[in-house]
Design a protein around this nucleic acid. Structure first.
Lengths: 227, 227
DNA sequence: CAGTGGTCTAGACCACAAG
DNA sequence: TTGTGGTCTAGACCACTGA
């Protein structure tokens, strides 16, 4: 463990031991730096990290205090599906079920910030792990946002093509639960109404929305992270 | 926007514009610092932040390269339920449905790393938003990990009492979807089998496991974050 | 107004891993 | 072996905000 990480750990321990109970003010950066015998910059790094995880709150002039009602922050890793499946030691494959140009349904147009009926490309894909249905992907692509030609997605998934072509765009992601509709039930091989874990992603560049995708995961899917 | 944040934005834009395509190596810290006219420390800060979000990978001697297959990392804020409801402008209330000492069921004992039949305290709580069922909480508490007396939880929720008493412990959190069981259906006022969003949390100190809790959210619940 | 955190600098040494 | 990122230092100025 490096220096500033050791200091961070020690501060965590002292907070957990209630040396500074929730709401209490810690000594200033300068005082703590002196106590630990490090430069103020090092102390700042440790404290900034604690603030980033929501353990303490920092304000100029007011100082650093232990969060009274902590809002824990967890980092969620969101890999592409292929990676996710391969990380389990399974083989990923996919089947492109639908590929057609279509005007945006109203809900999709609103979510993407496009006019209703905007021309989009619609893709429907089934992802498989070791040949078993893993997730159903329902995607809308904005061809205007993509300069080059769009592949036919028979060999490469839209996700992988996009991260290679329009890498590192921004967006939002949402998680929810929903009953399987007729199409999801058929494709995933489950009963209609089965509880499914849903991931919805909106991706955009500064210039234009790129894609909106809804992933319905087969039963048993769990999203896990350290806290 | 501060200096290092502006540099981070600019680097993001240059990567998105494929000046450095996925897998490409960026100039060294020193070179970039010279280009932007800042100290190496400032450059390091911007690059470290990009690495933390998974956009670039950094290794000593090998340099900084754009992540070939980006694993995006999103920060998830996990507030206590009261805060979550109040943030929507609704009023939080709760009803303690069950409070009893009971031996741990096998699944709970395994999850908490305790011997089977370990004596635990079991709490069942319904959380309401503006009087409407919001979430059903099914909690197991390890009294051994709690030094002081345990309140009766009629007035304070277990969650709020815990964060005030055993603040800032570590643990894991998992999200999934499941059909409503008979109890959840009854308490939340939904049909049995309804798709519910499930949050499961395990919390521990270094010394001992503290609590295991399963939250079943009423339909319509969504967990949203920026990407 | 004055004290606090936020940021930046110029320099240094070290750990690591690629060549 | 040596170039790269990772970390640390001592100092400085500034922005914010509570007293």
């Amino acid at each position: 463990m490096t220096g500033w990480e050791a200091i961070r750990s020690d501060l965590r321990a002292r907070i957990a031991a209630r040396q500074w109970p929730p709401g209490a003010v810690l000594p200033t950066e300068a005082a703590l730096a002196a106590e630990y015998g490090v430069a103020r910059g090092t102390m700042a790094r440790a404290l900034a990290d604690l603030a980033a995880t929501g353990l303490v709150e920092r304000r100029r002039r007011a100082g650093t205090r232990v969060a009274p009602v902590p809002v824990r922050r967890a980092v969620l890793a969101i890999p592409v599906i292929r990676r996710e499946i391969e990380a389990r030691g399974q083989v990923h494959s996919h089947r492109l079920l639908t590929r057609r140009a279509a005007p945006a349904p109203l809900s999709v147009a609103v979510a993407m910030g496009l006019p209703a009926e905007a021309p989009l490309l619609h893709l429907e894909t089934l992802h498989l792990a070791d040949g078993q249905p893993f997730a159903h992907e329902w995607r809308w692509l904005n061809p205007v946002a993509l300069s080059g030609p769009v592949p036919d997605f028979a060999d490469i998934t839209a996700n992988e093509w996009l991260v290679a072509t329009v890498p590192h765009a921004t967006g939002e992601i949402a998680f929810s639960a929903a009953p399987a509709g007729p199409r999801e039930a058929e494709v995933l091989g489950v009963a209609e109404g089965t509880a499914l874990f849903i991931t919805e992603r909106m991706t955009r560049t500064e210039a234009a929305p790129i894609t909106s995708v809804r992933l319905s995961h087969a039963p048993g899917y769990r999203l896990v992270t350290a806290l």
